[in-house]
Amino acid sequence: MSNIIEIRNLVFKYINDEELETVALDGIDLNIEEGSFVVVLGHNGSGKSTLAKHLNGILQPTEGTVLVAGMDTRDEKLMTDIRRKVGMVFQNPDNQIVANVVEDDVAFGPENLGIESEEIRRRVDEALKAVDMWEFRSHAPHLLSGGQKQRVAIAGVIAMRPHCIVLDEPTAMLDPVGRAEVIETIMRLNKEQGITVVLITHHMSETIDADRLIVMADGRIIDDGTPQQVFANVQKLRDAGLSVPETTQLIFELRKEGVELPLSALSVDECAESIFKAFA
């Protein structure tokens, strides 16, 4: 499989409020395969959002390169093409909805691309159906719940037919119901339409079904693997200011007491199964 995103030795520095040079990203090397579901985990200030903003050229590297489908994000002329390939969904659902009517908002992206009206209509309908918001097409966005608004934002992105969606903490401001709606939607888009998903989060429960989990701390990637592999390293995650699912915590604690248990059991069922085997 080919890589939709290729990052080589990415360094990003900026001048902070106290006029000191700050290194937000410190030598990131990363490839993201087309069609994969990648979760980036990290505490606040670990650089994960800065990394996200490099994936569609909102920020440009101080050093190193970021290639999106082979296009260098430092090339201003390619910006529209890059952003067509990689769509972004942000944390605050209110601050990314432009229009007063749901369907008009979804149409915003395709309109910017200069697509003809009938084709836009088709894409908007398709996108709204894909996120299960079609019945709400003529509603005013401010009357929707947080989860619904976030799904409209996702529809707005997929109406541009991107190859990859980057979601920068899309669930941080949502309640559990909204969170579940959003996660279920992006999982479906990944499975059914093969859209590459890069999900940035600090909710552990959203990471279990990912193909790949990348952990960031202090502007670097400190771990990269399947969720099973990464969560097995409980101590390392704790040191990075992150917590692990309670199931893993329990197994970790029992192992400390000398009980033989695999650290790869993440779901409730797997966890219960392996504990039962050890204790029955």
Binding site: I58, N95, V98, N112, I120
Partner: peptide
């Protein structure tokens, strides 16, 4: 102001670059 800043970024991410070359869904 924070909202304005975030909205501008979101609009740029959706390829907004002024009225030139823009079409309309509802003509």
């Amino acid at each position: 102001f924070r909202r304005a800043d975030e909205l501008a970024t979101a609009m740029e991410s959706r390829c907004y670059s002024g009225g030139e070359g823009r079409t309309k869904m509802k003509q």
